[in-house]
């Protein structure tokens, strides 16, 4: 459907307010002590196992943040990195983080340094383990492939936005026998992670990672709010499928009028300048 949404329409505004309201309400409820229960996310429990394995074998952990710049996806990957780094610090393991974006680079270094400091082992942090490789996709991939092989990493965690290089990183890790956990909202790369990794975190589970790993009330509440948001979307779909079916029945199956009306409604914004 060809919708013009350069600016929010009334529908968009109401929907986003509703979704944000649901999420915020559950966050504050959880902070107020109503800690909810969430289901297990299998891949995430494997992270601890992966770091433990690195310690046993005396080999490093690799953590790739994907190709994203400073956006929501990469921030979530950094949150997971924080958890991995604290575990690694606790067990005195190394975490190698190849970075693709110069803006992300200092943030990554700080996340790692803080994690080692928080576990009381600041001396274990090696600045050389956070490496800016390249901002070019395949130069980055070749570098990561080299690191995985040379360091013979014990486990490899791939979190963030990935593109065609996903399978290069995952298959290289598989070849050195690393335990691999991947998570990405880049849906088209998930099949390759499923094929080459031990555990893959799919779709929205990616955003549930920090809640599951930290059991922090804010995150748990947020997750429940997200569930309510999905119910709201599902309800919208079910109701509108009903409306569309009714339209189809009463208009002899001709749906153009329905689409026109729908487009008009979805784009409608009171107070917008004339001439649209």
């Amino acid at each position: 459907m060809d919708l013009r949404l350069e600016h929010a329409s009334l529908f968009v505004l109401v929907l986003e307010l509703l979704l944000c309201g649901l999420i915020l309400a559950r966050i504050f409820a959880a902070r107020g002590g109503r800690i909810p229960f969430i289901r297990r996310i299998p891949g995430l429990s494997a992270i601890d196992e992966g770091v433990g394995r690195a310690t046993e074998m005396g080999r490093p952990v690799l953590f790739s943040l994907g190709l994203g710049g400073l956006d929501i996806v990469t921030l979530q990957a950094l949150a997971v990195l924080g958890h991995v780094a604290r575990l690694a610090a606790r067990y005195a393991s190394r975490v190698i983080v190849p970075v693709v974006d110069a803006v992300i680079f200092p943030v990554t270094e700080e996340v790692l340094r803080d994690a080692y400091a928080a576990e009381g082992k600041p001396e274990l942090f090696q600045p050389e383990d956070v490496r800016f490789l390249s901002d070019q996709q395949f130069a980055y991939a070749s570098g990561v492939m080299g690191i995985i092989n040379r360091e013979s990493v014990a486990s490899s965690f791939l979190f963030g936005s990935f593109f065609a290089e996903s399978l290069i990183l995952a298959e290289a890790g598989h070849q050195v026998g690393a335990v691999q956990v991947a998570g990405t909202p880049s849906t088209t790369q998930i099949p390759f992670f499923i094929a080459a990794c031990d555990y893959t975190i799919i779709g929205e589970e990616y955003y549930a990672a920090s809640a599951y790993l930290t059991q922090e009330p804010t995150f748990l509440g947020s997750l429940i709010g997200q569930d309510w948001g999905k119910i709201a979307l599902l309800a919208t779909i079910v109701i509108m499928v009903g409306v569309a079916s009714l339209w189809s029945l009463t208009h002899g199956g001709a749906m153009t009028g329905f689409e026109e009306k729908l487009t008009g409604f979805l784009q409608y914004m009171p107070g917008a300048a004339a001439g649209r």
Partner: peptide, 19 residues
């Protein structure tokens, strides 16, 4: 490889197969 002892047992076999 010198550290072959610590590899997952199936890895070297699998790598050979991949080649």
């Amino acid at each position: 490889m010198s550290d072959a002892i610590t590899e997952r047992p199936e890895v070297t076999a699998q790598r050979r197969q991949s080649r």
